[in-house]
Amino acid sequence: MNLISSISKSVLLFTTLILISCNKDSTNDEITLSYQYLADKTWYLDYSQTDSLIKTYIGQSTYFINFIKDRKTIDSDGFSGTYSVEKINNQLQIHVQAVTKQLNPIEYIYNIESIGSKHLVLSYTTGGTKTTLFYSIK
């Protein structure tokens, strides 16, 4: 019985240690991690999907966008400006505020479907039609 009592005491000690160790809330970690994966890379468009139609751009001259660490962005169409990652209505998004080559301001938002160190999946909806864009780094 004493052996059981000693083991129970050890378990109790561990439980106390767990209870006193605080658990930090990590609401901004998703955004921090998204920046970490997104920034300092050039993302090349490999595929686009609208409804069930998939277009491939692999092996061709394709659209690319560069997200720089200082939150600036430039793409192959010559649009340049700033970007930010936000979480709105439980959805991670990339917000881009840029100017065209003719210096016309333009703002667009992409939903982040999936992001990793090598693959990025974004989507946007226009006129009720969802388009998904598949990017990768080279």
Partner: peptide, 9 residues
């Protein structure tokens, strides 16, 4: 989750 990890890595 929103994050993907290529398993080959």
């Amino acid at each position: 989750s929103n994050f993907n990890y290529l398993l080959s890595d």
